[in-house]
Amino acid sequence: MDSRALSERTWLVALARVGFVGLLLLLWWIASLSVSRNLIPAPSETWAAAQRLFAEGRLQSALLESLTIYGSGYGLAILVAIPLGLLMGAVRLLGRVLDIFVYALSATPRVAFIPLIIVLLGLGFEAKTFIVFLGAVMPIIINTYAGVLQADEELVEMARSTGAGRFRIFARIVLPGAMPYVIVGLRLGATIGLINTVVAELYTAVAGLGGLLSIYGNTFRMAEYFVVVLTLAAIGVVVTELLRLVESRLARWKKDL
């Protein structure tokens, strides 16, 4: 495909996305008219509520609070999970011993650990960060590990035939080959981490965006409630789009001329 046709299509996709947002707004507006006013606020009311929350500074402070927890938990998960996944893949024995526990832990609903975490770490920053960490760490470990195991045996043999040692083969063949898997893990981890941020804010000391959700939800202030939901959606979009950008930068070599 030549690059002009590709960029034309990119424009088309962007335009269609804007159109889709318009369609959603329309459906939302129709829904707000047909369902009782107290349950679904009109887009205009939501916009007014957003301006109000922003002017009061409540949205910003909640956003900052949530992003701090999300960033700390997710960052910690990356720092632990990538080295651990690589180690499990590089040292086969370690991988075979540990992988079943990783799979078991990742299949357990992490919400089940919250009471225990509260007992151990309290209701504050540490507990919240740990809940985010626990959600984000598993998919990153599992995908990094899978990426190392999927290493291209033919390329490894080629590298061996040139005299490359184990370390150089790992660093130059296995690790770059595992990157697409690592990125998938980071994307899954980002999503679960965001979910767990809200869960943590709802179940421990009520704070941040999760805290606002619970306050406005319980008091039926639906316009404000919708503002918080949309803010969370925006965080999700920004984070996953950033990771997509990283991915396409890393995968430049996949593109045809």
């Binding site: 033919e154 390329l155 043999e157 080629m158 061996r160 035939s161 040139t162 005299g163 130059r172 063949i173 070599w253 996949k254």
Partner: peptide, 16 residues
């Protein structure tokens, strides 16, 4: 294995 021998494989095996 090393530079004493050059190996050419059927499947090319270039690092993508």
């Amino acid at each position: 294995p090393g530079p004493e021998a050059g190996f050419v494989f059927q499947s090319f095996r270039l690092i993508p």
